Simulated assay, not measured.
Amino acid sequence: MNKYKKKSKRKWFLIFLVFVAFVYVNNSSLLATPKNDSPILLAHRGLAQTFSLEGVENDTCTAQRIYEPEHPFLENTIPSMEAAFQAGADIVEFDIKPTKDGQFAVFHDWTLDCRTNGQGMAKDYTMAELKELDVGYGYTADQGKTYPFRGKGVGLMPSMDEVLTHFPDKSFLIHIKSNDPAEGVQLAEYLAKLPEERLNQLTVYGGDEPIASLKESLPQVRVMSMATLKAGLIPYILIGWTGYVPESLQHTQLHIPEKIAPWLWGFPNRFQNRMDQADTRVIIVGGDGSDFSSGFDSLEDVQRLPASYTGGIWTNRIDRIAPIYNRNR
């Protein structure tokens, strides 16, 4: 009986070792297809003024806490996007808000009061009225002693149509800032008029409800929301060790915090291969996921990434990050 038990234990121990070996090899770089590509660089809001993220909440006026300006560009404006692409960005992210006359303004904040000389919400104004505002009005790096961009941002708030027309061959990540499903429907109606090759250059992310309504109307568009992120990553965490990629991870986008990424099966090389085969774009953002605006904004930040990483990098300082990859254009 003792001999039988010993043999049985040995047998199960060997099975366990084989299982561990399989999981290790199947998710290691040994089976990864090598890529010589450099990472995709995603410029958050173009080339913009940056600020401390410490203590930032949904209603924090970030224009009132910027660092001393190192460049003249303001977020979500055509000049800031031009500067980002010229610096070497592959994709530029911008935020949209519906207007009173059925357009989308490119603007980040819930209200106009912080960043501009206007008041209220973008939806209470026509696009022409929003054009009259100064989007540089509220910026200060010294608690209101000086306002270095005041008077320089009049007319710089673009419509989404202006942006896409101005950059006909560039890739964008469009951010729906609300959780209103009607905004997803409105955006889907706009995007449906674009040719397929243009749609392939656009990705949309935002609240669960508008993203769901947009995806229902335009299933071919690459999207991301917290719901799609969970729907894809949870099953992958459970069974991704086998190499299986769930249907929910096909043709989508993932924003993965750097502190979570190492826990994904096969990260970075094998995981990236699987996502490439699924036509899914991987973007690494800074931190632990508590603030998805946190990016890789310095050489020290980039050095935390695996040397072989070839996915996307989220940055608020494309002017600093692109030269690291010799991407200045």
Rank of each mutant, 00 (worst) to 15 (best):
L187Q: 07
G102K: 12
W263M: 15
L214A: 00
G55A: 02
D113A: 14
V56H: 01
E247P: 00
T140M: 03
I174G: 06
Q277S: 15
K215E: 02
G184W: 00
Q64W: 07
P195D: 00
F167L: 07
E300N: 14
L264P: 13
I283M: 11
L238A: 04
L41K: 08
E196Q: 06
T60F: 01
C61H: 02
L130S: 02
L264C: 15
A128G: 04
T77M: 11
D208A: 09
A84S: 07
A48D: 15
Y125C: 13
P148A: 00
I174E: 05
F296K: 10
G287P: 02
I15H: 11
Y309D: 03
G144L: 03
I321R: 09
P158H: 14
H175P: 00
K145E: 02
K11F: 15
L112Q: 05
V302L: 13
G266C: 14
D124W: 03
T77N: 11
A89C: 06
E57A: 12
Q201V: 05
Y24S: 07
E209L: 07
Q277P: 11
S29Q: 13
L173N: 15
L229Y: 05
L229M: 03
P210F: 01
D37R: 15
F51Y: 12
A231D: 08
P235E: 04
L202M: 08
V221C: 00
V204P: 06
K170A: 11
E75W: 03
G151N: 00
N328P: 00
R270E: 15
F16D: 05
E162Q: 09
F16S: 08
I176V: 13
K7C: 03
A278R: 07
D276S: 12
L305Y: 07
E196R: 09
V245P: 07
K11V: 11
R281G: 10
A83K: 06
R65C: 10
R329V: 03
F85N: 07
Q143Y: 04
R320T: 04
I313H: 13
D142N: 13
D291Q: 07
V92I: 13
D59N: 14
N316W: 05
